[in-house]
Design a protein around this nucleic acid. Sequence first.
DNA 1: ATTTTCACTGAACGCCCGTTCAATTCAAGC
DNA 2: GCTTGAATTGAACGGGCGTTCAGTGAAAAT
Lengths: 197, 197
Amino acid sequence: MARKPGSRAEITGPKLRETALRLFARDGYAAVSMRQIAAEVGVQAGALYLYTADKQSLLFDAMSDHMEALLAAWRAEAPKGDARDRLEHFARFHIRFHAARADAVFIAYMELRNLTPENFARIGALRSCYEAELESILRAGQDEGTLTVPDTKLATMALIAMLTGVNTWFREGGRLSRDRVEDIYVDMVLNAAGARV
Amino acid sequence: MARKPGSRAEITGPKLRETALRLFARDGYAAVSMRQIAAEVGVQAGALYLYTADKQSLLFDAMSDHMEALLAAWRAEAPKGDARDRLEHFARFHIRFHAARADAVFIAYMELRNLTPENFARIGALRSCYEAELESILRAGQDEGTLTVPDTKLATMALIAMLTGVNTWFREGGRLSRDRVEDIYVDMVLNAAGARV
DNA sequence: ATTTTCACTGAACGCCCGTTCAATTCAAGC
DNA sequence: GCTTGAATTGAACGGGCGTTCAGTGAAAAT
């Protein structure tokens, strides 16, 4: 993958981040060396440091960008209506968004351990924001009487775990289309949250 | 943690496996060196190879033992009755068993990547056996009419993800007792599986 | 045509890795 | 007290790690 002599490699920050994301997702942060990333980009290892402070930043930026994008995308959809509808909307959004970014999702869940304590706290804060979005729907549903959950905090964790779990087995082109998977999960989510039929 | 001069360290296979399990869970397989494990056991690195073939075996044995114990424990409980009761039993068993072995569970979910392909397939087979236990309950419930799930395969994945998610946040001595958490999750699981009220 | 700029190389730094094995140490059997 | 044999050490092997930086060479500016 060495670049042709006589031409610049023209590596860029974005390309480096994409490559690192892909390799981290495939082999794990600890198992991927800066030399491997560099080879994949078509450059020597030392050149990477023109585009990133260090290896840790590659991981943190990937996770941070993903979580920020997740929050921004959800807020942009800004669902209206009663809590039952908003919950359905959330479930469909979550499955759709996560299915489209399997690599980033995988990293965001598996590589938390490899963040420095400070970076870990930052990612944790972003995740809490996202969870708070779901919890506010459940609380609203409780108040309205459209949803009945035994404990909004636990229901939040339970539903997110259930929805995120889709990423461990869903593959485009499998037995069920993504739309069909959405429908099935919406059904289970609404039932779990005690939506009135 | 060096052993006292003049006395044998008396390390044993079980003690080594326990230490490796603890360190792998805390820091990750890739981040733990054989020298660290040896130091924790109170021995030089070379001595570990009297008790394990290699580092990979420490990981595989930990995961394999955990999955075998999980299957054996579930089969020993051998619940009778209708599918609704068996599903409740399964949910309580899953939460209880997993809460008691947080380290092993964490490894079994996070370190699959670090298994050789052959070992990965073996662990995958054990996991499939466990999932099949839940799926057979859901199918029975569907046949009996005591449960209503849109798709037994997806419901299996969804419920296991939901139940296993408990391990990411549950800590003994927190806001809710384990029994209370069990009750709440049973409620959500039964609702998600369309149990008749 | 010359100078300047700067992306990039390639070698080096110090360190840690999993694993092996000859040498040593020590408890037990005689 | 001596021999035996197993448990353990400690050094070594070959290799890879993240990161730094003086030097290089091609493009851009003059």
